[in-house]
Amino acid sequence: MKRLTFLFFFVLVLALAVGMPASAQSPNPTPSDDEVNAIARDMYCPVCENTPLDVCPTQACIQWRELIRLKLSEGWTEAQIKQYFVDQYGARVLSAPPAQGFSVLIYIVPPIVLALGVFIVLRAFRSMHKPLESSARETPPATTPDNDYLRRVEEELQKRD
């Protein structure tokens, strides 16, 4: 969710940048650590898997961050920089796969399964409503006498509480 909003923010910034081309074109002489980290936090370096690039202390990751700084100072946008890294090192540098090609599956399977789950639950609701009546007809005490007794005990206990 955090990144989603971040993305939203980023699009906003991009929109602003498009609106004001003059200011967007002027390259920043030395981008700050914060500007670098804002991009790096959404990336993963293959050398230290599962550690985001902005906090990874290895030499490789330090170099990657400096490269981001270099590209920023050359006036590259975040999208351009990420694309550069994807071209260089593969899609695994992104913190979530791009929704294209085979990776689309990662985004569409969970909603499908959820929909299936809702369907199954709804069906279960209905089947618990209806067919049981028929089964109850066939085997009238669906519960064993033993269970019936337990239920009575339970009711007793409930009353007492």
């Binding site: 490789a60 170099q63 400096e66 490269l67 270099l70 260089q88």
Partner: peptide, 25 residues
Amino acid sequence: VDTEPEARGYLTKFDITYPNGPDLA
């Protein structure tokens, strides 16, 4: 998994002449 500026520095430092290239993706 290397960055180009540093990689070039490395190649120059050790004066490496045999063909070298990045492992793209």
